[in-house]
Design a protein around this nucleic acid. Structure first.
Lengths: 106, 106
DNA sequence: ATCTAATGTAAGCTTGACCTAACGTTAGAA
DNA sequence: TTCTAACGTTAGGTCAAGCTTACATTAGAT
């Protein structure tokens, strides 16, 4: 998850993810969307691949990239758990408050 | 969301978030959980606060921190949308495949 | 007023991120 | 084979992240 987080921390990498979410695109097609040099985008792609967020498929001299949604699953789980646990904590808190009130009345 | 991402990219900051998720803790209590110096943790707390992930409440000379779950909401939305859109894309893909098959048969 | 406890802030160093320019590599065309 | 297209990789420079030490600040206690 660590790597995935660092990967999507870069705005351009998030845009790349969006690009290859629906369609399989070549490195060149992806790079053409941005102002930076092609090697810069190539490095982004390498990073995304190492983070498990995209897959690479070679076809002749071209390399086609596509999103790999499972890569974001751990992060999604982390957030969902965080939410659930937080709701649990809130529940415990309000119950504690409730007991306090009752105690006062008794 | 940018700031939130950079904030939770640090493992220690994620641990801090977990610490103050259920209980309100002072900077000192939080710093005591880690090996780095107190200023380092203080900087982490500042970062988390600026990212909107925790709230700070002063009580005398102490500062109490608590998680602010809304801070992670944008990131959660981003991931959820990503998932939904991805599912949509898959659906469109399979429909396209389906049409191809039918076309072949006709 | 002074002293102390609990923190934040600033300066300085080290390490890693990121970009560009130059070079290496692989697959297909001529 | 030779040439070319499409990429990746390396070297090097710049800027930001992150840690530590030293200093500043704020709120109570004496």
């Amino acid at each position: 998850m660590e790597a995935a987080l660092r990967a999507i921390a870069g705005p351009r990498r998030r845009r790349i993810l969006a690009l290859v979410r629906d369609d399989e695109l070549s490195a060149g097609e992806i790079a053409a969307q941005f102002d930076v040099t092609r090697p810069a985008v190539s490095q982004d792609l390498t990073l995304l691949k190492e983070a498990g967020l995209v897959t690479e498929r070679r076809n002749g001299t071209r390399r086609l990239y596509r999103v790999r949604p499972e890569g974001l699953a751990p992060l999604k789980s982390f957030l969902d758990e965080f939410w659930d646990d937080r709701l649990e904590a809130l529940k415990r808190e309000s119950e504690r408050e409730e007991r306090k009130k009752r105690g006062r009345r008794d």
